[in-house]
Design a protein around this nucleic acid. Structure first.
Lengths: 131, 131
DNA sequence: TCGGACCTTATACTAGGGTACAGGGTTTGG
DNA sequence: CCAAACCCTGTACCCTAGTATAAGGTCCGA
């Protein structure tokens, strides 16, 4: 059962204009159309858009999201390029996880200090992302 | 040994105009000045700016970064608010880590598929951030 | 049948986050 | 002493990522 642009936008929690914008950017494929020209989306479009928004929330640009969504292996011959891109993105994700884990530790300590009513340093968070 | 705006910018890898912008935004405190009005930064400013940039790379806005940098306990009386804010940010960090871990798993599988020269689904990454 | 709500595209505008420029003062090394 | 490089503030501009608006067509329920 195809969805209208408003239905997809509503389910994904974005503005319909945003979907047209993603289409112009090439991040969303052009969907099928009714004879009147209305877009008809697969429900998978919602999943795609949720992915886009969550990846942005994790610090990826639309360009980077586009690159991630294009990752696939169609046949063995193309593996080198896909492996390189996936590996590079894997390293970035690893690094983000490492840094967020540091921040998580410092925030956990801060919450504990609060619970024990203990003062903290002037800016306990500052060095969390230093390395 | 205080640093000039160019020295701090260079060490932190940003543009000097960015530092003035952060000062206008209140994210960086106003530094000491020479009699001629030149800014003189503590070396700690570099740490602060590195924190800002890395937090942005992790998906935090400048507003959120500002909030994080303001987290501290000065005396027991203020603990409630600090604990609430730190707790809220801790939850967001937890969620980011969870989602990035999912993405990490999918990217790892993708790299392994490449190494085994196996085809993948049309868009193996898509569901990585679905929940 | 009709009106309100939806859709279309093209264009203009907004918000967040910078970054460049103008005009003029200061510093520093040759 | 002087030129180049630095600094200052205020203002303007740029980029990314949306989002609104205009003008007009389509759909659907009353």
């Amino acid at each position: 059962m195809p969805l209208t642009i408003s239905e997809v936008a509503h389910e994904a929690g974005v503005n319909p204009q945003t979907l047209r914008y993603y289409e112009r950017r090439g991040i969303l494929a052009e969907p099928a159309r009714t004879p009147a020209g209305y877009r008809q989306y697969d429900p998978e479009a919602v999943t795609r858009i949720v992915f886009i928004k969550r990846a942005q929330d994790l610090g990826f640009t639309l360009e980077e999201v586009h690159e991630l969504l294009e990752l696939r292996v169609e046949h063995g011959a193309a593996c080198g390029a896909v492996e390189a891109t996936a590996g590079e993105n894997l390293r970035r994700v690893d690094e983000k996880i490492r840094q967020l884990t540091r921040l998580q530790e410092v925030l956990t300590e801060l919450v504990e200090s609060c619970q024990l009513r203990q003062g903290t340093e002037d800016c306990p968070i500052l060095e969390a992302l230093e390395r």
